[in-house]
Design a protein around this nucleic acid. Structure first.
Lengths: 164, 164
DNA sequence: GCTACGCATTAATGTAGATTAAGAAATGAA
DNA sequence: TTCATTTCTTAATCTACATTAATGCGTAGC
């Protein structure tokens, strides 16, 4: 039993192989439930390289995990002719859900960083995002979080410093 | 307004720096809301190397994202003396939440794999987990999902094959 | 049936970061 | 404060994977 009556503007749509459903920067507040076919989401980094974030086949949900009315981070397109249920992200969400969605957004960013950014770039992103954590834990734990060795972090930090 | 009255056996606890709250394999069905202090979760790979999955400071929630009554994947310990609200994962969850939690579990696994497994190991895990996807997309997209180049995947697959 | 384009494979070479090791600095316990 | 332990830095060497490039293959379109 649900308490919120969701005014869900659900629409069933058919898309062809190759069709793009979302581009980075779009204020697309939709997500897609795959009834048949196959979708993919991916980013393109500064070097022009594609990084696939996820595939979604039958019964999976495909969404760019950013809030509604936040510019999209990723491309979404169809790898096969597909049939989808399209819904709005703006459906009322409970506060409990909101926390989970925020956690998914953090993890999405983390995966993208791990796949497309160098050690020093991940470090700089971390420092910007969690400045308070940086001051409270030893360097080697930050290295461990970033997926590099403390030695590499030390070396790479010095290099970056001397460049400025 | 919530419809489910959650019988939440919430308990406020204090832990000292260094104290371990959870070990891999534990059937620990608890999660922790950090009131003060700092927690960390991490795995140890086959080579004995630590990989920090997340830090949780004030107002963050620390949880090993596996279902209740599923053996834990990670260590959780305190990096500072901390005060925590401890709750049970077994609180009633809505089906909507359940989907989100499953997605978080998938992402958690993905991050751990990216940090601690080699390309070929990630490939083998992917094939085992999504055998149907493997057959439906070109190799180069699987490589992109895994975070390696198609060339590397091709080479490494051949090596593995000749070893068997 | 061709033709062309995307895909897979292979090999040569390059590089970010791992590993190892040793000394310096910081931190914590007594 | 002192001693011991952990953490950080630096440097030399090593390795997994990236890059580049060339070749052959499969398949969709003509």
């Amino acid at each position: 039993m649900r308490i919120f009556v969701l005014r869900t503007f659900m629409k069933t749509i058919k898309v062809n192989r190759g069709q793009v459903l979302q581009r980075p920067g779009d204020l697309n507040s939709k997500f897609y439930e795959v009834k048949s076919g196959l979708l993919r989401s991916y980013t393109i980094d500064d070097k022009g390289k594609e990084h696939i974030f996820m595939f979604a086949s039958e019964d999976w949900i495909m969404a760019d995990n950013v809030g509604p009315n936040t510019p999209a981070e990723m491309f979404i397109d169809a790898l096969e002719d597909s049939e989808l249920n399209q819904r709005e992200k703006t459906e009322k969400v409970e506060p409990e859900n909101e926390k989970l969605i925020r956690r998914i957004a953090v993890l999405q960013k983390r995966v993208i960083m791990l796949m497309s950014a160098s050690g020093i770039e991940r470090y700089e992103h971390f420092v910007k995002t969690y400045p308070n954590i940086v001051q409270r834990v030893p360097q080697k734990m930050i290295a461990s979080y970033l997926g590099i060795t403390p030695e590499a972090l030390s070396t790479v930090k010095k290099q970056r410093l001397s460049e400025k």
